[in-house]
Design a binder for these strands. Sequence first.
DNA 1: CCAAATAGTATGTGAAACAGACGAACGGTC
DNA 2: GACCGTTCGTCTGTTTCACATACTATTTGG
Lengths: 188, 188
Amino acid sequence: MPETTPAKPATVPDSVPDSVPDALDRDLGWSLGVVFRAYVRIADALVAELPGGARGYQVLAAAAQELPGGQGALAQRLGIDKTVMTYLVDDLEKAGLVERRPDPADRRNKRVLATTEGRATWTSLCSRLEHAEEHVLAPLAADERDLFRELLRKLAVRAHTLDPVTSACELVTELDPAQGRPRHSVRR
Amino acid sequence: MPETTPAKPATVPDSVPDSVPDALDRDLGWSLGVVFRAYVRIADALVAELPGGARGYQVLAAAAQELPGGQGALAQRLGIDKTVMTYLVDDLEKAGLVERRPDPADRRNKRVLATTEGRATWTSLCSRLEHAEEHVLAPLAADERDLFRELLRKLAVRAHTLDPVTSACELVTELDPAQGRPRHSVRR
DNA sequence: CCAAATAGTATGTGAAACAGACGAACGGTC
DNA sequence: GACCGTTCGTCTGTTTCACATACTATTTGG
């Protein structure tokens, strides 16, 4: 236990990760969080003009591409609460980028469609976001980038079709019996 | 304003062009978000007993492995605000899983170390989280899983060392001059 | 010893998520 | 056509959370 001065002073460890055997590297959750936050940060900075930030862009993109379904389905697809989607679309509508139109087949559904200006804005921002993606993926080689995209897409499509609560529950029940010594009575 | 009216009529897209099943699949941000949320959801469910949820687990893991640096460095590494880290460690300390100890070299720094019970809890939860990771990665083949892990790790380590604000700014300034005529190519 | 700087903590504010209730619109059944 | 039950979107209230700010303790350098 090298408690005394581990060869590296605890001061000024700033931006020099000495290729450490950081055990956190092995944690998928940590890696996912870091990459996700990095992307969101860059994307938010790039589309800061847009009402909803990065999520507003995703709504706009969905509207411009005229994906089927009302804004409820859109919310589920984007992982946003439906109440959040309401004022997200509100802001975009106030900005004149999208408009709500009741689905003639089922007037309860309100489709979110981009206006002409909205489509123009989207195409403009779209190229920016491409740069953001490339920026995040920069550490990888070109073929690695495509590979990563494809693998991640596969995971996302699969994870999106599954009901997360259900899968979590069945995972818990799957683990519970296998947990010979389950919990150390972690009191809260 | 080049072509005002797009060839695509905005009327009643009952039959959506199925040539593009899901244009969102191509968006890296969407994929990242979906996978990240799926993981967090499962992880939170698995470590619900722990004070801070999935982030509490990460703090506990860092404490158990005795990573160098105080809780400020820890917060930066985990992408959490330092004020959040304060009451996160508070809760874990109240639960008897970690303890704060002033660094003898610099008593301003408070290292976060796991207690014996904390280490036991960590090893217990660690195996669970491994299952969670495998569950998220289930759609991939075994070799693909390892490959994805490695690629993601590379991205995370690189993104973590960079200052996100700086990189975002330089990306904006890089894009600004090119903004005059944005490319229309949505996706290559 | 004093001044500047840094780590951690406390506090206030605003935004966001979440749950629940409500009106509108549909699908049946009678 | 008139009644249910259901679904969709919206509204409202509550609670949690992140962020900025100010403050204390401690170190460093002159």
